[in-house]
Amino acid sequence: MENAPLPSKPHYAILDGLRGVAAVLVVIFHLFEAHATSHLDQIINHGYLAVDFFFLLSGFVIGYAYDDRWQKMSIGEFFKRRLVRLQPMVVMGMIVGAAFFYFQASKLFPMIAEVPVWKMLLVMLIGFTLLPLPPSLDIRGWQEMHPLDGPGWSLFFEYVANILYALFVRKFSNTALAVLVFLSACFLIHLTITGPNGDVIGGWSLTPEQLHVGFARVLYPFFAGLLLCRTIKLTRVNNAFLYCSLLILAVFAMPRIGGADRLWLNGLYESFSIIFVFPLIVFLGASGAVKSNFSARVCKFFGDISYPIYITHYPLIYTYTAWVQDNKIPIREAFPVALLVLASSVALAYACLKLYDEPVRRWLQKKLGPAKVYQKA
C-alpha cells in the first residue's frame, strides 16, 4: 500500500496563484514593518493575516488531496508525502538564515556579535528538523523558536495540524468536524477580543502565551478549510483570480481599526476576516477557472514561488530591518532598497525552487517511493 502511486487530481490553479499573491504581500508587509513605530500605523497593516490564509488554504488542499485516499494510503505514507513536499525548503530556509546571520549584527540585534559559530550551527541543525527552540537557545534576541528563519514557526504549526488530521480528524464526520470548527472559531475570537493587542500576531515563541496564539491561529483556519472542501458545491465565477487577489489586498491593507483605545474592534475585524472572508476567497478561487495562457502562466508562477519566497525571504528582512532602524532611514529614502529586497526575495525563491527544491523532491520521491499527489498539497 505504501508504495502504490496515487493518481493525480486536477488542481486549483487559481488557489495556487492566490497563495503566491499572499506570499508576496507578506514580503511587502515585512518591508513596511521595518519603518513602522507600531502596528497601529503600519502600511499593509494586516499583512500578517497571510499566515491564517495559508492555514485555511492548506486545510482545503489537504482535504482535496487526501480525504478520499485513505483506503489506499497509510498514515506513514501520508507523513512521507508531507515531508517530501515541505521539508527540503525548511532546510534551505535555515541555510539562508545562517548565511545572512552575522551580517545582521547591529544595534537592533546586539546579541548576534556574541554568538559563537558552533551555537549558530547547532541552531541551524535543529532548525532543519523544525523542532522548536526554547528561549534559552535564542541567538537573536527576539525569542523566536527558529531565530535563523522566523517564519519557520508557522511550518511547525502546519505540521501539528497535519498530524492531528492524519491521526484523528480525517475520521471525523462532517458534523463532528463542524463542531470542532465552531469551537476553534470561539477560541480564535476569544484571543482576538480579549488579547492584550487586539490581533492574532504571535505564535513564534516556545512560551505558554505564544503557544496559545499559535494554536488559536492554526486550528480554526486549517480545519475550516477541510470542512469547506468537504461540503461546498462549486459554482462558476468569472475573473476569480483578479477578484480574489483584490479581496486579499483589501483585507491586508485595511488600516488598524479602533486605535489604541478600542483594540477589541480590530480583533473583531481579524476574526471576521479569518472566519468569513478567507473561506469566501477560497470558495471563489476554487470556483474560478483559468481561461488564457497568460493567466495560467501568472497563476503558475505565483504558485511556484509561494512557498519558497515565504520560507526564504525573512533573512533578507532581518538585514533590511537592522539597516533601517540602526540608521533611522525613512521609507521614502529606503524605497529603492526596499524594491531591491523585494526583487531579490523573488529571485532567491525562484532560484531555490528550480535549482534545489524541485530536484531534491524528485530525488526523494525516487528514493522513498511514488509520491505523486496534488501539486501543492
Rank of each mutant, 00 (worst) to 15 (best):
V337L: 14
A36T: 12
F55M: 01
F278W: 06
Y165R: 06
G195Q: 00
D326V: 13
L18R: 09
D326P: 11
F276H: 10
F335C: 02
L31D: 05
L247P: 06
A296M: 15
A161E: 01
D304L: 03
K119G: 13
W153I: 02
A347W: 07
I248S: 05
S245R: 02
E158I: 00
V341W: 08
L211Y: 00
T235V: 11
H35M: 13
V282C: 07
L56C: 07
V181F: 02
Y320S: 04
N238K: 13
L155C: 09
S295N: 14
E270Y: 00
A377K: 08
L148R: 00
Y64S: 02
A50K: 03
I329C: 12
H35N: 12
V123R: 03
L177N: 09
Y314E: 11
Q143I: 11
M124S: 00
D304T: 07
L340P: 09
M89L: 14
G17T: 09
V373R: 15
V277C: 13
I44C: 08
A224Q: 01
T319D: 14
G303T: 05
L268V: 06
S344R: 05
W363G: 10
Q71D: 13
V117P: 00
A216L: 08
L133K: 10
G59Y: 02
H11M: 12
S8E: 15
L191P: 10
F156A: 06
F301K: 10
A296R: 15
L121A: 07
F272L: 13
L368V: 15
M73D: 03
A113F: 12
T192Q: 01
T321Q: 12
Y64T: 06
F335P: 04
P5T: 10
L355S: 09
L188S: 07
V324Q: 07
C229W: 14
P336Q: 00
D326M: 14
G47H: 04
P134T: 14
F60A: 01
L342Q: 06
A296C: 14
F101N: 00
